[in-house]
């Protein structure tokens, strides 16, 4: 359900970009999805197929998902570590003064337009 809402946002943004660039069909949309963004990529692509095929601009358009690995920065020792493996506590110094550096993205990276000549 969550993913379907996000798909509607993606469609709105892609339509706008297509209009600005004078494009009448988009063949792929490339997303950057952070590992801890709470978006499940499989659900996102399933919802995408259902919703995109209802739009002439996006019929058959593929949704490509790039996963951005989550990295946390530790203020205690200044080092970085893998968020998914260690969570909120720094594995180097056990500090809990940590914050997410990246991995929360839900971003449209680019769209691909195929010109058949």
């Amino acid at each position: 359900m969550h993913e379907l809402g996000i798909v509607f946002y993606i469609i709105r943004d892609v339509k706008q970009a297509a209009e600005e660039n004078g494009v009448d069909h988009v063949s792929a949309v490339v997303m950057n999805i952070g590992e801890v963004s709470t978006v499940v990529p499989d659900y996102l692509t399933d919802c995408w197929r259902w919703a995109a095929d209802k739009e002439p601009l996006l019929k058959g358009c593929e949704l490509k998902v790039h996963i951005i690995p989550a990295v946390t920065h530790c203020d205690g020792c200044g080092r970085e570590y893998e968020t998914v493996r260690y969570g909120r506590t720094c594995p180097h110094c056990q500090s809990e003064q940590t914050w997410l550096l990246r991995g929360n993205e839900v971003e449209i990276k680019e769209i691909e337009v195929t010109n058949t000549t």
């Binding site: 993606i10 970009a17 449209i108 990276k109 680019e110 691909e112 010109n115």
Partner: peptide
Amino acid sequence: DVRIIEIKKSV
């Protein structure tokens, strides 16, 4: 021929 249009925008 595939044209790439960069968007780089948070949903």
